[in-house]
Simulated scan of single mutants.
Amino acid sequence: MTADQPVTEDPSAPRRRRTLWWPAALAAAVALCLGVPALVASGSSASGSAAAAPATDSPEAGFARDMATHHQQAIDLSFIVRDRTDNAEVRNLAFDVINTQANQRGMMMGWLDQWGLTQNSPAKPMAWMKMDYQAHDGSLMPGMATNTQLDQLRKLSGAQAEVFYLQLMIEHHKGGAGMAQGYVDEAQNATEKRLAQSMVTAQTSEIQLMTDMLAERGAKPLS
């Protein structure tokens, strides 16, 4: 199975994991619907879209760029584990992450385009939060896995892959929820703030779920 093949939900998955998919998907869908009028409004402002758009060094632009990058690694991790285990519960968790975070990433990239801003910036990641994170081995922001950890996950299979994926995703969600809360505290764009708050809520809930899944496998989070 390859990364470009569609992911399908296993109907035999435990009810706990299957029911969690709906709040996450619903939050993403609601956020998408909320984002449409905001984009239209910014493009039709009487003073012009350029005047209404956030500046390239604003928290709005910084959060959109950094969270899009953060989300992309979560998607990558989930595609890796999807091909390394047959466990229905873990594969359905990966399905949720891929679909929800790809949806949200597309929204943030769309906002940057609507604002007339580039998707990348020479500024250091997290600069908009006034955070000086020391990037290392591909880990650009808090919670992101290193290249070494990604390579290790690719070499594992079965229960070992499940445990390591859950451990990495807990750290990833901790970093992501922290970043989203940082934006909520600074937000000037109401629509983007609502999306960030939905991330805090959903990822905090999934951290507990994944901690429980680790316990069922006789393992604990990395920190």
Rank of each mutant, 00 (worst) to 15 (best):
M1K: 14
A3C: 10
V7D: 05
T8Y: 11
E9Q: 08
R15K: 06
W21M: 10
W21D: 10
W21I: 11
W22C: 05
A25K: 11
A31Y: 14
P37T: 06
V40Y: 14
A41K: 04
A41G: 12
A52H: 05
E60H: 06
F79I: 06
I80M: 12
V81D: 00
D86L: 12
A94L: 01
V97G: 02
I98E: 07
W111L: 10
N120K: 08
S121M: 09
P122A: 14
A127F: 12
W128Q: 02
M131R: 07
A135D: 09
A135I: 06
H136E: 12
N147A: 15
N147V: 15
N147D: 13
N147L: 15
L156I: 08
V163Y: 09
L166D: 02
Q167L: 09
E171Y: 01
H172A: 07
G176V: 01
G182P: 00
A187V: 08
E192K: 08
R194S: 04
L195H: 03
A196F: 11
S198H: 06
S198V: 03
S198R: 02
Q203K: 03
T204I: 05
I207V: 13
T211D: 07
D212Y: 07
D212P: 04
D212G: 11
M213R: 01
A215E: 08
E216N: 07
E216T: 02
G218L: 12
S223Q: 13
